[in-house]
Design a binder for these strands. Structure first.
Lengths: 336, 336
DNA sequence: CTCATTCATGCAACCGATTGCATTTTGCTT
DNA sequence: AAGCAAAATGCAATCGGTTGCATGAATGAG
């Protein structure tokens, strides 16, 4: 392994000081254009690469942003990450990504790792059983910005980026009502998580406004198995629902499959609405009515506001919560 | 922002030298047990966190492993990543992940970024239009290990981790033959990529052995749209296939949907086999026969061999290619 | 032609952990 | 009590880039 080229090597070759070389490479205004050209040319020529560690050590920042998500393997998350990556690259930051796998324990470990690697800021979507933000305390103490997205918890030190889940749940329910459905059911996720609790709340609110019962609510993990279980549950009901709102497309899809096997016609017997506009929504039969969620945009906005926070004025964060728009997409699973 | 605690602070407090503190925290054998206890206690107490940058700078290594994948949003990739993360954590390394989005251009940029952040090793699954490994030259020159997985290209400096795709394609075809199918079709991906080229090769080989024609082959990107296009293509064939092998579950699923709409019965008119055992395989109707791919295991093995390479003897890598087992999972899409 | 500015560059002290070698301390042995 | 090996600790240089301040050079005004 040959030795690395350093600014000292460049300086020696060009009979300049390391300080000048450093400044030139950083495009510092005090360096003349000619010298800059010389230096960048030499650097290129010699195969110089800046030593991030030395730089980070001296500047006391890492130019790295951490992301913690519940799982990487959701279509939604990957669009969010794509959005983040785009913005973060443009701003010359790096990303380190980790997944909590829906466990607070792992989330805490991730937070600690992130803290120890001295990231400049953190973007988090909470695990399903996270109760409070106490494990982020070290970040708050050091005034390292933490931005929550999608699955959030209110906190004075955190900006949250969300959609209006209450409204989305409301929209889903109203859509079913407009299809003439009377007996509604909802399959939801952990009620500790704002997203699920709020969707349920909106759902109930809409039903109440239309004088409909809201007693059919199942809470689970929104997995494939939960979809099957929901179908089995429906099957043994004396009076099964005719409208079903599931807080996740994948779960909705597996539920639809089981319902069809059990002899229910979709949408005639039961109209179904999912959530997220996951690719699976277009593959399942009939195609799934769902709520489109602006993942890429959410990622971009989260990253953007973190970076502007980092480079600019903390007081900019007048907005403690940013709400994005969602959209109901109507497909065959809820209309003839 | 209060100042950070350093080993100097600990040393001063305990009237020891920074060297001793550093060694104690690293559990160096030359430090007495008592002193170690004192030091770790003090470190804990004072809220010390090691400065990775200083350490990396001094030790000339980052303890970080880079991963480049075509896309994050596939169920398969996320199981691979989960496997990697597990191993890498245990070995006290960090991960940085980036996606090439199936473009060589982006892949090259990612490689450069990885190189500049001085990762200790690289794990890569190639983008669909990568022709050669020339952009990895800097890594080869510096003898930084590069391990390819899943989508590989042969190279003397790289270990590859793969499944036997020829055999998998062969297995899929033989399975269809055993179901009594005579007219086979295959939907594949970029033939630049070993995985797709090899599956096709195995498929053809099996057909040849059974004296069947192999003229029905479609090459695309294995997207949803490609699935729909394949169905449209089949529909206008004078003599449509009765056996279909698609090199990706998601694409197979969308194709099945379109075929059913076009009036084909699955599996009676056309028996379908997918690839990967993606979750969607269990949601589509009928459930999809497919090839299970040991993603988690592949991630673990890739990470494992990289780490052992890093900490041990490079000659250990006598194996230039590691082949994992796959498995045909038979479900309703190919059998009555 | 002189003196005051502006512009460009250099000096040197960091940032915090690591490690080869030197030195001290400890524990035994005789 | 002296001698000595082994065990424990300290010294000081090093990794490479950054930045406040000082210095030297060039430019312009009077």
């Amino acid at each position: 392994m040959e030795k690395e080229v350093t600014i000292y090597d460049i300086a020696r070759l060009l009979k300049l000081s390391p300080a000048t070389v450093s400044r030139a490479l950083k495009d510092h205004p005090a360096i003349s254009a000619g010298t800059k050209r010389l230096i960048t040319a030499a650097a290129e020529e010699m195969g110089y690469r800046s030593n991030t560690f030395a730089s980070n050590l001296r500047r006391q920042r890492s130019n790295t942003i951490g992301v913690i998500v519940p799982r990487l393997d959701s279509a939604f998350m990957s669009t969010v990450l794509a959005g983040m990556e785009k913005i973060v690259n443009e701003g010359n930051y790096n990303l380190i990504i980790s997944q909590s796998l829906e466990s607070v324990r792992k989330e805490k470990a991730n937070v600690k790792t992130m803290f120890d690697s001295r990231i400049d800021g953190l973007l988090v979507s909470l695990s399903s059983d996270t109760d409070d933000l106490s494990h982020f305390q070290p970040f708050f103490q050091k005034e390292i910005p933490v931005i929550l997205f999608d699955r959030v918890l209110p906190h004075p030190n955190c900006t949250s980026i969300v959609i209006d889940n209450v409204r989305a749940g409301y929209d889903a329910a109203v859509h079913l009502v407009r299809q003439g459905r009377k007996r509604m059911m909802h399959v939801s996720g952990s009620q500790k998580r704002n997203v699920y609790e709020e969707r349920l709340r909106g759902f109930r609110q809409a039903l109440a406004e239309h004088g409909l019962a809201d007693d059919l609510v199942l809470v689970g993990n929104l997995t494939r198995q939960d979809g099957l279980d929901a179908a089995r549950y429906i099957r043994q009901l004396p009076q099964p629902p005719d409208g079903l709102f599931v807080a996740s497309d994948f779960c909705a899809a597996s539920c639809i499959g089981a319902l069809k096997e059990a002899g229910f016609a979709i949408p005639n017997d039961i109209a179904v609405v999912g959530f997220n506009d996951d690719p699976v929504a277009q593959v399942v039969e009939p195609r799934l009515t769902t709520i489109r969620y602006p993942g890429q945009e959410m990622g971009e906005i989260a990253a953007q506001s973190l970076i502007s926070h980092l480079s600019g004025q903390p007081p900019v964060t007048a907005a403690n919560t940013i709400v994005l728009n969602h959209e109901l997409i109507v497909r065959g699973s809820s209309t003839p």
